[in-house]
Design a protein around this nucleic acid. Structure first.
Lengths: 213, 213
DNA sequence: TTTGTTCCTGTACGATCGTTCAACAATGAA
DNA sequence: TTCATTGTTGAACGATCGTACAGGAACAAA
């Protein structure tokens, strides 16, 4: 007669749950170990499962990574959108909330850059990753363009080129974020927000026909 | 009696020349193949030598890569400095020349970003790479701060925070450069320069005590 | 209790990685 | 011409990679 209580050697899970757990483990592994974390053995260890399980739920590593990228970017933009929705309905306040969301946790984290760099490095050779990248850029860009459009409409400055404006603001945001992640002690998150606000100020002033000279 | 003319199986070179050739081949390989180009076999193939030669001239791969990084960044900042020196001695014109240099070949090239991404990915785990990175950032930052200082002095706008200003401009520059490299058909290099010029305009206007309100 | 489904494990395979090293050969000096 | 120097080659090593696959085990249904 064997023992009445036996600890099972592993716990079965629904395929969907396990897939998500593997995706989460992939992101964690990339954040923690960078490019070295991009290995089925590291990912499996992070998820607490065996090596073979990955290829049971995903046809190959590349697909897992691409889906992780998709999840990663969707989560970030969803957080930005949520921050905007929580802000007062004033265009300026909503844009400010967006800035705050970009320059605070969990987005403002060197480990997030570490993961981004891995994804950037992959997208040149994997069409699947490239597709996920385009999708992410579109979501982020549309959100930012909408915020800018509202602002411009409210301010009544008609002469703004929406395309170029959003390109500039995106660059400033990404550039500041990148700079901070590469060297967090260089400046404070608040200062990054201030710089973005100053850019907006300048934008609203510039497009009104110059007052002097 | 053997043939009078025999083609040598390989050509010997001075150690210094060969080292430089290997460094050049490393950069080429990273530009061309991204992270996959970071392999002694790829690099040796690119340089047209055998695998073993690398460890004859460098103690290990990491050292070769770190020195390549150093060479890569020095070359870029040297080009920026040269562009500035060639411009008329007017602060505004020199800054414009700097912008033009950033947003034109050979700096404005998706392959350059490909190489950068590999280096960024390495610097988290290699102190040698990190040192090269800091050195590069210092050179670039000092050049930009000097240009901004001259501009501010000439314009006579005393209230500018030089630290924060250079952080903002660096972010705008890097962000635009990154955006263009990730998707070159998104905007034209001229437009990037215009955005930077507009930022400078806004800067000079902002710091003068506000005229109205 | 038995059976079937499928989630899961872990070994194995071939490929490629960085590094080592003994042998080779190009070149200049003797 | 011979010799010594040293830049160069390429096979070999152990480690690690992604993937395949046969077998084991958890859980639900019968």
């Amino acid at each position: 007669m064997t023992a009445a209580v036996r600890k099972p050697r592993y716990e079965r899970r629904l395929a969907g749950d396990r897939r998500q757990a593997l995706i989460d483990a992939t992101i964690k592994s990339l954040k923690r170990h960078g490019h070295e974390g991009l290995s089925v053995r590291r990912i499996a260890a992070e998820a607490g499962v065996s090596i073979g399980l990955i290829n049971h739920h995903f046809p190959n590593k590349n697909t897992l990574v691409a889906e992780s990228y998709r999840h990663f970017t969707r989560q970030l933009t969803a957080r930005f959108q949520a921050a905007v929705l929580l802000a007062p309905p004033d265009p300026r306040a909503r844009l400010h909330a967006f800035f705050e969301a970009v320059f605070s946790r969990p987005n403002l984290d060197p480990h997030v850059l570490t993961a981004w760099i891995v994804f950037w490095g992959l997208f040149r050779q994997s069409p699947e990753i490239r597709k996920a990248h385009d999708e992410a850029g579109r979501g982020y860009g549309e959100l930012l363009r909408a915020l800018l459009a509202d602002l411009v409409e409210a301010a009544g400055t008609p002469r703004i080129d929406p395309r170029l404006t959003s390109i500039g603001l995106t660059a400033l945001l990404d550039g500041l974020w990148l700079e901070w992640c590469l060297d967090p002690k260089n400046f404070k998150p608040d200062e990054a927000v201030s710089l973005c606000e100053a850019w907006i100020e300048g934008l609203l002033r510039t497009t009104v026909p110059a007052t002097s000279r």
